[in-house]
Computed example of a mutant assay.
Amino acid sequence: MIEPRLKYVPCPGPAAARAPSSGAHRMAFWDWGGAAEPAAAGHVIVCVHGLSRQGRDFDTLARALAGQARVICPDVAGRGHSDWLADPAGYQIPQYAADMVALLAQLHAESPIHTLDWVGTSMGGLIGLVLAGQAGLPLPAPVRRLVLNDVGPALEPQALQRIGQYLGVAAHYSSPEQAADALWKDSQGFGPHTPKQWLQLSRPMLRPVPQGGFVLHYDPAIAVPFRAVTPQLAAAGEQLLWQLYDQVTARVLLLRGAQSDLLSPQTAQAMQQRGPRARLVQFDGVGHAPTLVDPAQVAVVQRFLLGEGGAGEP
């Protein structure tokens, strides 16, 4: 079975920071290797996870894509194997987007990128939207195809409130199995999974602690800026995200759990009618967000990225 390599990229702190210790950090990423076909070696697919998740969420999808592209799955700052930020205020989309620019520059220096695709679940989709919606960013190639997994410019307040109830809450687990059971209580929107599938998704969510047992893999402080968002800030952020969406030139595939509480039917419809006019695919029996483990979900993404003209098609 194909396994990825864990690598790191140095990332700068906020542009306003002057001291090296005030924000510089390392971001971890999982590299699934180059494409089997030499002609596709410059095709990179970046897969970015949701708010409290990590890069191993994409193992199933990455294995399906890795033979035809270089698949990269970052652990966003504060999650997984990445550094925790000294200032929790940095746990926001602008810093994450800057980290991805640094990642792409390192990848391009290693092996030139001629085709760049993006798969983003929830927060990862918003990061992709920021990159794809700004033509002046120093990307090695423009984002060609963008998969937004159950996310759009408008986020439903009740879903954000639900997420805020468990985000950053400290917990200790005696075993991965106990942790998986606990995590399922907050994750039933992901839709049906076999016990084996759910345990595989849950194991990378944990890190062992010296006193024994496990805690969640992320810095609890990622909840600080999340909980500081006021209705006014949310409204301003939504307006900016719609502006960015309207500027996207990539082809867009919008995935939605039919029972999603984060991406409303109204927002999904608007995304089909404006800007890049996303193609919508909905999955029944799933809320927020599809995990891209089910073969039917994987096939939809695989066809969009690889099966409609291949990596050479603009």
Rank of each mutant, 00 (worst) to 15 (best):
Q297K: 02
G23N: 09
A179K: 02
G152T: 04
G191I: 10
L255G: 06
Q266D: 06
A35F: 03
Q297H: 07
Y245V: 11
G213N: 06
G128N: 08
L183C: 02
T60F: 13
T194V: 06
R144A: 15
Q54K: 03
A109R: 05
H114M: 00
G136P: 07
G55C: 11
Q165C: 09
G312F: 04
G136Y: 05
G128D: 12
E313I: 01
G189L: 05
I45Q: 15
F214S: 03
L262M: 14
H81Y: 08
F29R: 01
W30T: 10
A17G: 07
V209K: 00
M123Y: 03
P204R: 04
F226N: 08
L51R: 10
L244F: 07
P142W: 08
L263R: 00
D87E: 15
H49G: 11
H108M: 00
P10W: 06
S174R: 12
Q161S: 10
R56A: 15
A299Y: 03
L160A: 07
Q302V: 05
P276V: 13
A109G: 04
A278G: 13
E37H: 01
N149Q: 09
H81I: 03
A234E: 13
R303T: 12
A102W: 01
L241N: 14
Y96C: 06
V215W: 05
P210D: 02
A109T: 00
S175I: 04
L131V: 08
V101R: 04
A64H: 08
G34D: 12
R79D: 13
D59N: 14
Q282K: 04
L292H: 09
V209P: 01
P276S: 08
A35S: 15
A109H: 00
V119P: 01
P295E: 09
G67W: 01
A132V: 12
L241F: 06
P74R: 14
V248Q: 11
